[in-house]
Design a protein around this nucleic acid. Structure first.
Length: 492
DNA sequence: TTTAATT
């Protein structure tokens, strides 16, 4: 490995003309700060150009750390800082790094000599050496959708070059190399990008595309985190009616999520959780942080395409109407007793003895209990968590019966795994569920992905519709509407 | 039809 690195470095040696006097001392211990001591003055405080560029280094084999990387990059100048990115929880090498040279010129030289010029051992794409995202000014990267899958980088470039200087143009491809029909295009400035959107979005329909060209600003990493979170929720079979309420009560939601994330993180560090759960914890922390910054929590991600501004994407974000909003949930965290943190946590589903809690009327609490209950049905994903957080005792099964007119809901697009119990858990926060029934194929015993829920009063039913209709689980959105009255008054 | 990775 080291030999190969040296080969690469030597291969680039011709490009090195600056700062040859500044190579680090041979016995480097891996601390990359302070490498720039000048020989005659070891106590020099590390200095870099005021306009130094922080570089992002991508496509680094995960078995290379700072000291392995250093020789390669020193060829181009004195290194001010070199940091391999690691996962916050697992410490795992993320396959990329940040590199700052003392001199701006060194960064430019390294970029031109190395970026996409060489593939490091074990990697299938060339090394990336370019200014970090943090260095860039403003939003200038576009997502381009609805391309023809035959279109190449050059084709896209030709389409976009009239609107400005294109710094990057990448077709997204699957592992097989086939285009996914979309691309990223980065301009030098926000204005250029905006001009391209104005001119090209919806302007034409590529052959074979199902709708007209989409040109919009690419997701920010905040949005990407949300998207990932949502996908994970889908994969883990997690659902969370609370998300809707979170939308209306951002600060409280944020507090809850941070607490939950903190608990998960601390448990994870104690070794009780599997890596998936640790990942979940990390995502939750990020999400909590993001919500603080004003990103809507309720629709984790709008799924519709186009350039509709986030937050008003159809279906409209359901809001919790009066029954819950007024009676159950004032929007203020329960912290009147002077112990906000601990009490808030325990009051929201992680209490060791939830069954003994006399305040179970709070829909927040019920919804969280529902999540946990559901989690209990998924030992594969949740086994460790189930052990770490005691579950509420199983509910006593109820008589299945239909409620009065206006109290019975038809629910479609249920997850395949949902049974009667999960269906009930999902709707419990909105009122007294007197029955829940998922329809099952007689031959296969598989859910038909629809079912019925009955409340004992119409207001609860309406609340549930408001809250859950359009609620996204995985890739699907629930359809929740009143059961058609004509369908006989026969119990399920 | 939203990227492998951005402290």
């Amino acid at each position: 490995m080291y030999i190969k690195m040296a080969t690469l470095a030597n291969g680039q040696a011709d490009n090195t003309s600056l700062s040859n006097n500044s190579h680090g001392s041979p016995g480097s211990n891996g601390h990359m700060n302070g490498l720039n001591h000048s020989p005659g003055n070891p106590s020099t405080i590390p200095m870099k150009d005021h306009d130094a560029i922080k570089l992002f280094i991508g496509q680094i084999p995960r078995n290379l750390d700072e000291k392995d990387l250093k020789p390669l990059f020193e060829e181009f100048g004195k290194i001010y800082e070199l940091t391999v990115l690691k996962d916050r929880f697992t410490g795992m090498h993320k396959g990329c790094a940040f590199l700052t040279y003392c001199e701006r010129e060194s960064a430019l030289k390294a970029q031109s000599a190395l970026h996409e010029q060489k593939t490091l051992p074990g990697m299938n794409r060339p090394i990336q050496v370019k200014p970090a995202d943090s260095e860039s000014r403003g939003d200038r990267k576009l997502f381009v959708g609805m391309l023809n899958k035959q279109q190449s980088e050059d084709d896209v470039r030709r389409l976009f070059e009239a609107f400005g200087n294109i710094e990057e143009c990448t077709i997204l491809r699957g592992p097989d190399g086939n285009s996914k029909g979309c691309a990223f295009v980065k301009y030098s400035s926000h204005a250029e990008a905006q001009a391209a959107i104005n001119a090209l979005h919806g302007s034409q329909t590529m052959p074979g595309a199902s709708s007209s060209l989409v040109v919009k600003f690419a997701d920010t990493d905040k949005e990407r985190t949300m998207r990932r979170m949502q996908q994970m929720a889908g994969q883990m079979g997690m659902f969370n009616p609370m998300a809707i309420q979170f939308g209306a009560y951002g600060a409280y939601a944020q507090a809850l999520m941070q607490q939950q994330a903190a608990i998960m993180a601390s448990v994870a560090q104690g070794g009780y959780l599997n890596p998936m759960a640790a990942f979940a914890a990390a995502q939750m922390q990020q999400m909590a942080a993001l919500n603080m910054n004003g990103l809507a929590a309720a629709p984790m991600t709008p799924t519709s395409g186009g350039s509709t501004p986030p937050g008003i994407t159809a279906p409209a974000v359901p809001s919790i109407p009066s029954p819950i909003g007024v009676n159950g949930f004032t929007g203020l965290p329960p912290q009147a007793n002077g112990q906000p943190a601990a009490e808030a946590v325990f009051a929201n589903g992680i209490h060791p003895y939830p069954a003994q809690s006399p305040t179970a009327a709070d829909p927040l609490q019920q919804a969280y209990a529902g999540v946990q209950q559901y989690a209990a049905a998924y030992p594969a994903a949740y086994g460790q968590i189930s052990q770490a957080f005691p579950q509420p005792p199983p509910m006593i099964p109820q008589q299945q019966r239909e409620g009065p007119e206006g109290c019975n809901l038809f629910i479609y697009h249920l997850p395949q795994e949902f049974g009667d119990a999960e269906l009930m858990q999902m709707f419990l926060p909105f009122g007294n569920v007197i029955s829940s029934k998922v329809f099952v194929d007689r031959a296969t015993n598989q859910s038909k992905c629809f079912g019925f829920v009955s409340f004992d009063n119409p207001a609860s039913a309406q609340t549930a519709i408001q809250a859950m209709n359009g609620f996204q689980i995985g890739m699907k959105r629930l359809k929740v509407q009143l059961k058609r009255p004509k369908d006989a008054n026969r119990p399920y």
